[in-house]
Design a binder for these strands. Structure first.
Length: 832
RNA sequence: GCCGGGUUGGUGGAACGGUAGACACUGCGGCCUCAAAAGCCGUUGCUCGCAAGAGCGUGUGGGUUCGACUCCCACACCCGGCACCA
């Protein structure tokens, strides 16, 4: 074998290389962010993991993508903050502790260590000095402090209300954690319970949370913006006051919310939510028995039944009437479960002609249907299909007021609201689907709520200097869910003196939703060791908002909405000077296998550790980044980590072929290869900025191929352009394959680390092509290609095109009518 | 039903309104080898053709344009969000 042959088949030992560089990085500590650096700051945040076990393919993907951005920005000269921590409170640890008769911390911190080691092996450019865990008292002390601050502002309050209850996890859930009537975490069917619980008043911020989505829309994924808009669910309409006439002869107001006040003349009955307190208060004595039977039946029905849209309408006549404020008409009042107690006012005016639900109800109970908007469609009373579009108003007048003849919905709404407001019978209004955030949980492994309940003083906040309220030591069977928090049974912990009066009192025994912990961790990263405050406002304002937040789309409405809410509250408190925490966002897709989500039951799981052992870290990372657009799902069965490793070895091999010395002036090198190199660097920057990492990798592959050709059959290995090209490959590869890149960089005679080598300078002069391929079309069809100078004139290009043999052939017998020339790229000849 | 996003070779995917299929994977042929593996080189959208070449081709149907994967309209299907929210 000749030396040359050897260089074409040589490979490096993947695992030895990994171990070697891990030690070097440990020593050099090149990714520590300097708060006081004069460089421009860049905050690259990735959603911190929950320590459920070792890292899996999902972690590998999000981290690989995230690290491309962090490493790119560092090369570009930014001071990059790329922190890591763990969202370490939560149910899985608690359930494991019950199973294994141990403390949740055992499971939690063991897994954190495992994951931390795996991240280090994975070569992620994290700043390990800022590591945090939300279950550390040093952290949750400040979660408690924030809770108290929110409470001082009236943004954390307690109320009694029917809440979502997971019978399996034995805890309440926020609306956001109930998916299709099931517990988001365990899949059990969620039931309702009447409980007194803590809430964050996120609804105070509904409008701002909605409005600022417009600001985020250009840099946030569409699906996240859409999901949040839908979740907030703003609707515009009006409150309208009807008068109820009770059986005992008294009257009272009944206010309803409607988005179609313009159809007020079509209201033929009213419906009150069966489970609203009002319904029980106003029902007539004759109908009370029937109502109570109906209510009992309603309560028994689960959310699953309720959610079914196919279900026929049910209800009961309350035996009373109400007066329509615009025409004095008396209509019957019913109770039904299709009206929700906690939206609007819990009561509606039913306009069966123009609302499908009301029409279904009217038909089920023989109630009248009156059309007040003629849309040209058939009468809803006959078809059973409500008409909801624009049309001409009819039967809509009383006294000196009339909508009749009008054909514009917006004007109709405006006119009737004006009228209602003038007469004091209603007003324009906005409603949101968003509800307050229920934050209490009846579980142990979470942040204790720093409140003491005193018989005399009521709710008393734990004084700040007594924070944190630490969790008592409970383990194993003590943690078994029993419907109230396990903390309630820890009598020594629960029973305390009231901080205010010194009398006997009890700690609040619930813990906080873990989404509270994760609503501010990105702030803590800016000053993670600060023992005097939750975060240093100056440092937070210097680093934030996060320039990029990479993570899973499953948090589109949960974590991302809560974190936005927290940030707005903190801005109102004057603690931060921005109102949105994440300037831009990237949601990675899911790694699946053989067309399906990986799962134990399907047996299609792909083990990350095995992939890393078989192909090496770099090949796995490269495969994930090269697979396609970052937000697309990746089917691992379609991928070729072996192919990725092959490419990396090919790239590495180049570094052994370079024979010129480090520091040689590339200006004297082969111009053709230099052009490829500089164009690649130029394009790669734009591709990374626009998150087209897969294309960036493809371009790097092209550069490798071009360099290989130059070495073997072009300018040869000692040409300075070859060194320039290979050094460029090493730097570009460092975004995705840090081990291979370091190895190349060292073989090229440079000191570590390539991560700080800087982004290559682009020579603009080398971006100019000296010949371009001009395309000649006849009738829009490609007929010829011409190599021409980039500066060719339109006339010259046209002449050359028409002179071409293939073009003449295609034109045969036809007359040239028109020639479009776009020098130097294209000519289109139109004939006929 | 309402709101977003999508549909390109055998596969993953590229393509400022201007060469469709870059870059890979797979397949096929070859080199190396006693042989195999690995590696390397060539080839690979479909149809016809020995070839030169020709025709077809980006979910469907229209439109705008000299020219459309790209823009506009309608439709089908897939994915995500919301949904008895008045």
């Amino acid at each position: 074998m000749t030396d040359h042959d050897e260089s074409r088949t040589a490979t490096y030992d993947v695992h030895a290389t990994e171990e070697k560089w891990q030690q070097v990085w440990e020593k050099l500590d090149p990714f520590r962010a300097d708060d006081h650096s004069p460089r421009e700051k860049f905050y690259a945040l990735t959603m911190f993991p929950y320590p459920s076990g070792d890292l899996h393919m999902g972690h590998a993907e999000v981290t690989a993508l995230h690290d491309v951005i962090a490493r790119y920005k560092r090369l570009q000269g930014y001071e990059v903050l790329n922190p890591i921590g763990w969202d370490s409170f939560g149910l899985p640890a608690e359930n494991a502790a019950i199973r294994n008769d141990e403390h949740p911390a055992t499971f939690t911190y063991a897994n954190i260590e495992t994951q931390a080691e795996s991240f280090k092996r994975y070569g992620v450019s994290f700043d390990w000095s800022r590591r945090l865990h939300t279950s550390d008292p040093e952290y949750y002390r400040w979660t408690q402090w924030l809770f108290l601050k929110f409470r001082e502002r009236g943004l954390a309050y307690r109320k009694n209300s029917p809440v979502n209850w997971c019978p399996n996890d034995q805890t309440v859930l926020a609306n956001e954690q109930v998916v299709d009537g099931m517990c988001e975490r365990c899949g059990a069917e969620v039931t309702k319970r009447e409980l007194t619980q803590w809430y964050f008043k996120i609804t105070d911020y509904a409008q701002e949370l909605l409005d600022d989505l417009d600001v985020l829309a250009p840099t946030w994924p569409d699906r996240v913006v859409t999901a949040q808009r839908n979740w907030i669910g703003r609707s515009e309409g009006a409150y309208v006051d009807f008068t109820l006439h009770l059986a005992d002869g008294t009257d009272r107001d009944l206010t309803v919310y409607t988005t179609r006040p313009d159809t007020l003349y079509g209201a033929t009955f009213m419906v009150i939510a069966a489970d609203a307190a009002l319904a029980a208060e106003v029902v007539s004595p004759e109908q009370r028995e029937a109502y109570e039977a109906y209510l009992a039946a309603t309560r028994k029905a689960s959310d699953i039944d309720r959610l079914s849209t196919e279900r026929p309408k049910t209800g009961v006549d309350l035996g009373i009437t109400a007066t329509n404020p615009v025409n004095g008409e008396r209509v019957p009042v019913w109770a039904a479960d299709y009206v929700l107690a906690d939206y609007g006012t819990g009561a509606i005016m039913a306009v069966p002609a123009h609302d499908q639900r009301d029409l279904d109800f009217a038909r089920a109970f023989g109630l009248p249907v009156r059309r007040v908007v003629d849309t040209g469609e058939d009468n809803p009373e006959e078809t059973g299909i409500a008409t909801t579009g624009d049309g001409v108003y009819v039967n809509s007048s009383s006294g000196d007021f009339s909508l009749d003849g009008l054909s514009d919905k917006a004007t109709g709404i405006h006119r009737i609201v004006e009228r209602l407001e003038a007469e004091g019978h209603g007003k324009g209004a906005v409603n949101y689907r968003l509800r307050d955030w229920l934050l209490s949980r009846q579980r142990y492994w979470g942040c204790p709520i720093p409140i003491v309940h005193c018989e005399r003083c009521g709710e008393v906040p734990v004084p700040e200097d007594q924070l944190p309220v630490e969790l008592p030591e409970l383990r194993g069977a003590d943690l078994k869910p029993k419907g109230v928090s396990p903390l309630a049974a820890a009598t020594e912990w629960v029973n305390v003196e009231c901080p205010q009066c010194g009398g006997p009192a009890q700690r609040d025994s619930d813990t906080m939703d873990t989404f509270v912990d994760s609503s501010w961790y990105f702030l803590r990263y800016c000053s993670p060791a600060d023992e005097t405050q939750a975060f240093d406002s100056d440092l937070v304002n210097a680093w934030m908002p996060c320039d990029i937040y990479v993570g899973g789309v499953e948090h589109a409405v949960l974590h991302l909405l809560y974190a936005r809410f927290f940030t707005k509250v903190l801005a109102d408190m004057g603690l931060v000077d921005f109102r949105e925490p994440f300037a831009a966002q990237l949601n990675q897709g899911t790694v699946i296998n053989e067309g399906a989500k990986m799962s134990k039951s399907k047996g299609n799981g792909v083990n990350l550790g095995e992939q890393l052992s078989d192909f090496g870290v770099d090949a796995v990372r490269l495969t994930l980044v090269f697979a396609g657009p970052p937000e697309d799902d990746i089917d691992w069965a379609d991928m070729s980590p072996a192919g990725s490793l092959r490419f990396l070895q090919r790239g590495w091999r180049l570094s052994g072929d370079v024979t010129s010395e480090p520091g040689v002036d590339p200006a004297t090198g082969d111009v053709a290869l230099r052009k490829v190199t500089h164009k690649t660097v130029h394009d790669a920057a734009q591709l990374v900025e626009s998150h087209r990492f897969n294309v960036m990798v493809a371009r790097t592959m092209e550069l490798v191929n071009a360099t290989r050709k130059a070495i073997d059959s072009g300018c040869g290995p000692d040409d300075p352009a070859v060194r320039e090209a290979v050094e460029t490959v090493a730097i570009l590869l460092s975004l995705v394959a840090p081990y291979t890149a370091e190895e190349m960089w060292e073989r090229l005679g440079h000191q570590p680390t390539v991560a700080l080598a800087g982004w290559p300078q682009v020579d603009e002069a080398l971006l100019v092509e000296d010949s371009v391929t001009a395309v000649v079309q006849v009738q829009g069809k490609l007929r010829a290609r011409l190599e021409v100078s980039p500066g060719i004139s339109e006339a010259d290009l046209e002449a050359a095109a028409l002179a071409d043999e293939a073009v003449q052939r295609a034109l045969k017998g036809k007359q040239v009518r028109k020639v479009i020339v776009r020098a130097p790229k294209l000519v289109n000849v139109v004939a006929g």
